[in-house]
Structure formats: structure tokens, C-alpha cells
Design a protein around this nucleic acid. Structure first.
Lengths: 347, 347
DNA sequence: TGACAAGGCTGGAACGTTCCAAATTCTTCA
DNA sequence: TGAAGAATTTGGAACGTTCCAGCCTTGTCA
């Protein structure tokens, strides 16, 4: 027990009052010292600090928050933390918050709106100072209204929500997709599919929109079935292969909703004895770490998710500090040409 | 503004007292209702609940914690969240805590003991109810003493710390490694290296210990240089290839500290025109998701990190609820035989 | 020398809950 | 019908901070 030498210590925890008593000063002064106020004499400060050190006192942020109505807790809800793409995002967010002296709650929504609602409620009860959310599929604007109404800074990361006026940080899905498809076209591809994701995901709309724009600009057909919907996972990609190839006029290339789907396409092609880059033009999206290590290495649209995470965190901090502007950041994106698209250049 | 119809609402937030006033009952009763106490009459409960619903009241957990000296916040410090292996761990932990009504702080220590110390302090100030930590390399027992001394439940996940009496949840590194090496030996390998990790990591000791035991049992030599140290990343694996092959009596197989290192070995072999499974026996550790998708698919020791995470969370919850026992859980582990080791069986 | 200002410090009232002991109301039964 | 007992409800004192208005000291200057 690291109890104070002066007098018997009550069983409870060491508090500012104890420090005050031990050092012959008022609790207000102790408080000022801990807040680093310039109002207190250097000599007094030292004395207090020494007593704190000696006693094993630990500041009670809960009590402070209660009184000052301002916490240093922030919320972070990620829909799929096991996905490296989102994990990177989380890491970027956490890094910025930590250096700014904030500490994040984390919640892994797992695409489950009900769980998401629960954690949002819990975070609200804890009076978080701000929120970064990568909303689960099916999140309605109303789900986040309470936060906005309470004037709480909210930043949507990666995924926006229709009808919600909130700051957002997203990659430039449209432009990235368009660029990727233009590249495939330049390699001679004419029948290009878009694989993965669902129509009700805004990111899918943006990416397939870029695909569509490039196709239209080149005057190319997009026959029925050019967009293959499905969960953004490996299976979808693998299944899509047969769909794309077993037809009168097979597709010769595809832009995938994300890298994971593209990995599935690689598997599916391999099953038929085919190789991306040689027999089929394939481009992914995100540039997750494994993309450079597939066989062949995947051409993909690189998204710097850690940087986007940092950006999102900075946006929250700005809003916490009173900035009223609602930032809509669209992050740069660039095509990384490896082997799967059939081009010969290396990155 | 969702303010109460009855009387003018002060600018501040809606509180229990407001609910009490609006419904003609005391704040104590409101509190009881919110705690789901059976002491209050059903009729009263309804009335209170209705008023809460109507007013947009949100429970202030900070205030509650202050008074009851018991939070539902828990700490989770992970050293490398961007690593899917640890991300899975985090997901498992989060899942259990969420269903139990706890909410985790997250901190990504990034193997930086200083940052780790900072977040631990911050978590302590927030009076967390328990802590799961996957300690950064170089964490000393003293760093976690304050928690233990305060009687705060601490569970070490994946990595133990020498000299600290705390609960832990780890995979069976020793047995897994031994089993893997036995398998390589059964395939005819005699010169088997251990690649990756550092001597000051307990996990590395355990795994290399298993390797050593199997080698000794089979009466095999472990010449100097059989253990290749290095950060547990791809580069280490890649670099190790030359070291293992460019010598009078080259190694014919290796057990890697983890899958990521093994991926590097695959790359390194490819650079020399060699293939794991055909020209070299290779086994990884962890069985991360990509392991089954490498070329060739990686034989590895499977660790169910999500399950370990759940286990760790359950351990914390038990301790929070007063269980004094210090659990040391060693999780089952099994060898998944794919192609990289050279055996022909499929999993 | 007295008034005033500045610099340090302080006591008490919040903040929104929970806890406790006691008060009140309702039931039951002799 | 009255009293005992059970079922509900309640006021006020915590919890550990911050905030505020004001109190001492000193020092300065007219």
C-alpha cells in the first residue's frame, strides 16, 4: 500500500483532497497544478507534484468530466476490423487521437445495424467528444441524427450515408475506378465487367459509376449482367468467373469492387487453368498489403487508408475545437500497375 | 430540441431529476427504474420509461461511475493492430465485451513501450474495470505492477511477461512447433532451421523450444546458425533464404516464427527459382487467412486467435466479478498440412 | 501612508448519479 | 378494525473533480 506518511489513510482511493491535506494547500490549488495553470507559484507546484508522486495518486478523469462536461473520449466504430483495409484505417485514427491526448472506444459493428445501434448508444452514454464511424450496411441517416442534433462531431469514414449532413472522408472511388477501366481499355479490352458489392452501398455506386463513365466515354457496351453483385469477399470473385466466361461473348477483363474480390477471381481463374494478366485482365481496388504478393501481383487502385484515418481524426479534432465547417474530404487514389491487368510495366 | 413539454427546460442536458419532476416521482425511483430494479411497481416503471422516451434523456454513465466506483469500460492494448492475427484477437475480445455490456478502449502500442505507458496511464485515469494487453516487446513487469497492485484484472494475451503474476491466454507454442518439426522430419528432412523472431520474445522461445525438442528427440544436429533471428516480417523470411541455402550443407526445411515470415521465405525461394514444397520444406505459424492462398498454400500451425481473444475477455469478466483465480490458458493448436512442406495430403 | 492592483490561493457550490436509512403506502390476517 | 409486515418510494449525503467569486498578501505609486 502506497499510503501517505501523514496521518491514517482512509481505505478509499487517494484523492486531490488527500494531496491538498498532505501538502498544506487547498484542493483548488491541487486542481490548478494538475491542469498546468500558470496561476500557481512554481514553488507550490513543485510541492504538490512531489506529494502526488509520493502518494501514487491517480487522476480521476470521470469526476473531472462530470464537472467540466467535456471528455477526452472519442468513439470509433468500424464495421469489419478483421479486414486489413479497415484495420489500417483504425490504426491511422488511433495514432492521431493518441498524440492529441484523446482515447478511443472501439466497436466492431460487423455489418450488424442492431449491434451498431447498441454501441452508439453506449458511446453516447459515455459522453464521447466525437465519433468516427464507418457505418454498417443499412445504416439510416436517422441512426446518427441524435449525435448531429446534440452538436457532436461525426465523421463518416470510407462510406457515406444518403441524406445525412455530416463530415466525411472517403477515397476518390469514382475517379479511381474510371482510371482503372481506362487502363484496361488502353490494353485493348472491350468487354469489361464490374464485380462485387451491392447496389445499396454508396461506395459500390461510386466505383461502378467510374467504371460506367469510362465505358461510356469509350463508346463500349455494357450488356445486362456486366455488373456482378455480391458480398465483397473472395467467394463472390471466385463465383463470378464462371458467370463472366461461360457465355457467348465472354468478358475479357473485370474491375473488382475491392482487392479481396479480385483475389477470388484469381482463384476462380486458376481453377479453370487460367491466369490473370495472361488470359484475363483484372484490376482490384484498395491495394491491401497482400495485393503485391498474389500470383500474379495484382494491379489495383491504391487507397491509403491509414492516411484517410488520420484525416478523419484530424477532422473530428477540429470540430471538437469548435470549427463549424463540415469537411467532405475525398482522398487521392492512384492506379498501381502490376501484372494482373496484362500490362508489362512494373510499379 | 426535444425538450420536455412540462415547464421551461434549462439549457443544460436532460437529467434524472428532470425525468423525476416530469413524472411526479423521486430521482431515486428513476434511478431504480434505469437499473432495472424489481423494487419498483410495474406501473411506475412504465410511466418513467415513457417520460424518458419522450424527453430524449440519455443516461450519464460517467456520473454513475463516479458514485458507484465501478465502470463498464475495459482496456485493450494491442501492439500491432494492422497485423490480421492481432486484429482477429481484437475482434474476439470486442465481441465478448460488447455482449457483456462492456465497452473497450483500444490502443495500438506499435511496439513502443513509451506510448504503451502513456495509454496505460490514461486508461487508469479512466478507471477501467479490466485490461487485456498484448504487451509490446520490452515491457517490464514493473510497467503493469500498478494495475496488479490496484487489484485490477489484467490478462496477457499472446505474449507473457517474465516475472509478472497475471492471467494469460496464449497458444500452445511449444507443442505446435514440436508437432510441425516432427512432421518435417517424418517427410525425411534432417537439416531444419528456425526462422524469425528475437530471443527476448517469450513466444519465440516457446516456439523455438518446440523446434529444439523435436530435433533433439530425433537425434538431429542443430548447427550454429540454425536459428535465424529477425523482426517477424516478410523481409526477415526473404533474407533468411540465402543464409539457409548458401552454405556447405544447406538446410532443406524451416519452421518459421510465423506465417508472415514464411511468406517472405516463399518470396525468397521464388527469387532463386525455387518452390516451397518441391525444393524446400516450409512450415509457418498462426494460420492467418492468406496462408491458404499462397503459392503453394502454406502448411502451418493453426492458432485460433479470435477464440483466444474471446477466452481472454471471458477471463477478465470472471475476474471483474470477483473470481480470484489467475487463469493461465494455453490454447489448442493444430498442424494444417497444405503444400509448402512437401507432403501430399490436403487439409 | 493609504488606495489600488496584481498575484496567489481558497471555500463552497456545482456536475448527475447511486446508496442508504427511513418514511410512506398497501396487504393481510387475527 | 388494527397492527404487523411487505412492498414501494424517498430525501439527502456521498463520489472526486472544476468553476467561480472573493479573500489574503505584497508591492507600487500618488
Amino acid at each position: 500500500m502506497a499510503s501517505e506518511a501523514t496521518g491514517a489513510q482512509a481505505p478509499g482511493r487517494v484523492t486531490m483532497v488527500d494531496i491538498a491535506r498532505a501538502t498544506g494547500v487547498s484542493k483548488s490549488t491541487v486542481s490548478l497544478v494538475l491542469q498546468g495553470s500558470p496561476l500557481v507559484r512554481a514553488e507550490t507546484r513543485e510541492k504538490v507534484l512531489a506529494a502526488i508522486e509520493r502518494s501514487g495518486y491517480v487522476y480521476n478523469r470521470g469526476a473531472a468530466n462530470l464537472r467540466s462536461a467535456r471528455t477526452n473520449i472519442v468513439g470509433m466504430v468500424i464495421n469489419d476490423l478483421a479486414n486489413p483495409f479497415f484495420a489500417e484505417l483504425a490504426v491511422g485514427i488511433e495514432r492521431v487521437f493518441q498524440t492529441a491526448g484523446y482515447i478511443p472506444f472501439i466497436a466492431n459493428a460487423s455489418e450488424n445495424p442492431k449491434r451498431q445501434a447498441e454501441v452508439l448508444r453506449s458511446m453516447r452514454e459515455h459522453d464521447i467528444a466525437g465519433l468516427i464511424i464507418c457505418p454498417s450496411r443499412g445504416t439510416r441517416a436517422a441512426d446518427l441524427e441524435p449525435f448531429a442534433a446534440a452538436g457532436l462531431p461525426v465523421v463518416l469514414a470510407m462510406r457515406r450515408i444518403a441524406g445525412l449532413r455530416a463530415a466525411s472522408v472517403t477515397p476518390d472511388n469514382f475517379r479511381g475506378a474510371r482510371r482503372a477501366v481506362e487502363h484496361l481499355i488502353s490494353l485493348g479490352h472491350r468487354r469489361i465487367a464490374f464485380v462485387g458489392g451491392y447496389q445499396d452501398m454508396i461506395a459500390q455506386n461510386d466505383r461502378s459509376g467510374g467504371w460506367r463513365a469510362a465505358m461510356e466515354d469509350a463508346g463500349l457496351q455494357m450488356p445486362l449482367g456486366s455488373v456482378v453483385e455480391g458480398a465483397p469477399n473472395r467467394e463472390t470473385g471466385e463465383r463470378a468467373v464462371d458467370w463472366m466466361l461461360d457465355r457467348a461473348e465472354p468478358f475479357t477483363a473485370a474491375l473488382c469492387f475491392n482487392d479481396v474480390v479480385a483475389f477470388g477471381v484469381i482463384d476462380g481463374l486458376a481453377r479453370r487453368g487460367m491466369t490473370a494478366g495472361r488470359d484475363f485482365g483484372l484490376v482490384g481496388f484498395d491495394d491491401v498489403r497482400e495485393a503485391r504478393h498474389t500470383q500474379p501481383p495484382l494491379t489495383t487502385v491504391a487507397v491509403d487508408s491509414a492516411a484517410l484515418g488520420e484525416r478523419a481524426a484530424h477532422a473530428v479534432l477540429r470540430m471538437v475545437h469548435g470549427d463549424q465547417r463540415v469537411e467532405d474530404h475525398v482522398g487521392d487514389v492512384h492506379l498501381v500497375i502490376r501484372r494482373s491487368c496484362g500490362a508489362v510495366r512494373e510499379d
